[in-house]
Amino acid sequence: MAGWSTQKGHALALAIDNIDTDQLIPARFMSVPRSEGYGRYLLHDMRRDDDEQLKADFPLNRHEGISILVAGHNFGSGSSREAAVYALVDAGIRAVIAPSFGDIFANNAINNGLLPARVDAEKVTQLQHALKDAPVLASIDLTENRLTIGDITATFELDEGWRVKLINGWDDIDLTQQHTQAINAHRDNRNRAAPWAWPNKPD
C-alpha cells in the first residue's frame, strides 16, 4: 500500500448520519473477489432504484471524480466488513470527513490508505453548507492534520499511530515480523503461566 501525505481532489457533501456498513456495501455483494473491484457497489441501494438504474438526484451520481466525502455522525458504524472500505477506495475515495466513525471501520480504513478525518460537528455542518450539492476543490495535509475545502480550513483529529501509518503506507505484517522473537517469548511465558489458555484437544 502506497503512503501519502497530501491529497488534492474534489469534495462532496453526504450529509447523512449513521451511514452504516450495510449501506456502504449491502451483504449480497461481498462474495465477489476483490480483484473484480468493489467501487460499483458503493452505497448501492441508496444510489440505485429497483431497476438498478442510478438515481439522478443522489449527489454521488451527479458528479464524477469525487475523492473526499463530508459525511454525518457515526460514519461506518456496524459490521467489521472491510468490504465497506474497499467499496469507497475502489470508487476513488481517499478521505472521509465526519464528526465520528465506527471504531472498526476507522481501523479498516487506515489499513487501506483511506483517511477517516474526525472534525468537530459544527465545522462539519459548516463545510456541508459551503459545499451544498456541488463538488468543491479540497486539499488535505496529513503532516499538519489540516484540510481546506474551498475557502474553509479545518483541523482534524487522527490517532498518531494511524497518521504515521498512512503517511508511510506501512504494512502491519512486515512491521510485526520484526518482533517475532518477542512474540515467541510471550507465547512461551503464557504457555507456562497459563496452560489453560490453550484448548483441550477433544478429538
Binding site: S79, V85, N107, N108, N111, D172
Partner: peptide
C-alpha cells in the same frame, strides 16, 4: 471484531 487486513 476485526477487519480482513487484521484477520490476515
Amino acid at each position: 471484531g476485526i477487519g480482513a487486513t487484521e484477520v490476515a
